Computed example of a mutant assay.
Amino acid sequence: MATMPRLLFLVPVLVGLAAPPALAQSEPFRVVNRTTAPALALHAVRSGRGDWGGNLLNRGPLAPGAFFALRPSEGAGCSFDLRLVLQDGQEIVRRNTDICTDRTVVMTLSGAARPVVPAPDGKPTPLPAPAAATARPGVAPGARPNPQARASTGTGFVVGPDQVLTNHHVVEGCSRIFVRAADGRTLPVPQAPASDARRDLALVRAPGNPGPALAFRANPVRRGESVVTYGFPLAGLLSSGPTLTTGEVSALSGLADNQTQFQISAPVQQGNSGGPLLDRQGNVVGVIVSKLNAARIAQRTGDIPQNVNFAVKGTEALDFLRRNGVQPVLRESPGEERSAAEVGEQVHPSTVFIRCER
């Protein structure tokens, strides 16, 4: 059996808001070579890192059917990018793999392999990956959630007939997805969502009329505007129903000047991921995506940041929806604000709870 080297990772500063199963992050996990060719290189880095780091197979190839055991360092998080380079000139890449959910990561050629070509320096260089994501099994009509399954949860909202918008990380790696509408009906998702990992957006088809489509704001958003969030944070701990919070648009860009996101002061928690960010007229201006990890920042700076959260901009969501065949509803927002309670009542029928089973 291969040895278990200790890996070092950067401290994460963002927290995704899908509610994951609670497992210790520093427990070992295994990467299995489920191919017919030996692997000459294995790379495992925290998701979002700009390079692949060193080759972990420094003591020899990983035989077909064999596994390599790794123990992440403390604070490395649950999300890893993995790369397996085979002797026959192919590689397998799996991004945003949740090792807290599944301690055995199977690397297989099915739908995941990319040919590699030699570069001038003799190192393998992968060809561009196909744009389409590998399809995952859908859920048969009438199927019900499995209460014994490992599951995470998030929020979504209706953007068209039977179409629900959420975050990519809410539905990534799911074997089955269910949508619970505002009227209490649970709708199985019959096919793999359309996803954009860069924007962290996904479009879920949920036949059965999950609710009316929300309108997106047509005019630009200004810094300092009041906003409302609506979603399902900390499912099983807080209320089983949706939760409303209020705040402002703090900045017109996200972490590290990310121009695809807003920074907001409205409080959000795990489970809010994929929920709508609304102006005070009830129109969508963004999609809740993440919060700053206050504990990690406090460890590094000695100061605890207050209500630093992020949402994908509505303009990015509109472009994603149009590219996937959805014609969103657009509406101008007049100057007069409505109460947060009125906004919540307006969006309630269109906001859904999402369950991801693995």
Rank of each mutant, 00 (worst) to 15 (best):
L127K: 04
R205S: 05
T186L: 10
D162T: 07
R180S: 15
P190Q: 07
R136Q: 15
V170K: 06
P141S: 10
P207L: 05
R185Y: 13
G208I: 10
L214F: 09
R199T: 04
A182I: 09
Q163S: 14
A131C: 06
T134G: 15
Q191T: 05
G211Y: 12
D183Y: 14
A197R: 06
H168Y: 13
A202N: 08
G142S: 14
T134C: 11
L127Y: 07
S152L: 04
I177P: 07
R180K: 15
A143S: 15
A149E: 00
P161G: 07
G184F: 05
P161E: 13
D200R: 04
A140H: 01
G211H: 13
L203G: 01
G138K: 06
A129W: 09
V158I: 12
R185A: 14
A202H: 10
P128Y: 10
N219R: 03
D196F: 00
P220G: 01
R199F: 01
N209L: 08
L127E: 10
P137M: 05
Q191P: 05
T186E: 15
G138I: 04
A149L: 05
L203H: 04
F157K: 00
R222H: 00
S152R: 12
A140N: 08
A202S: 13
N209S: 15
R136M: 13
D162M: 03
T186C: 09
S226F: 05
P128I: 05
P220L: 00
G184P: 08
G173W: 03
L203Q: 08
S175R: 15
G142A: 14
D196G: 03
A149W: 01
A218V: 02
G184N: 11
P220R: 00
G208N: 01
H168A: 02
A206F: 03
A192F: 02
P210M: 14
A129P: 05
N167G: 12
A194G: 07
N219M: 01
A149C: 03
A182M: 08
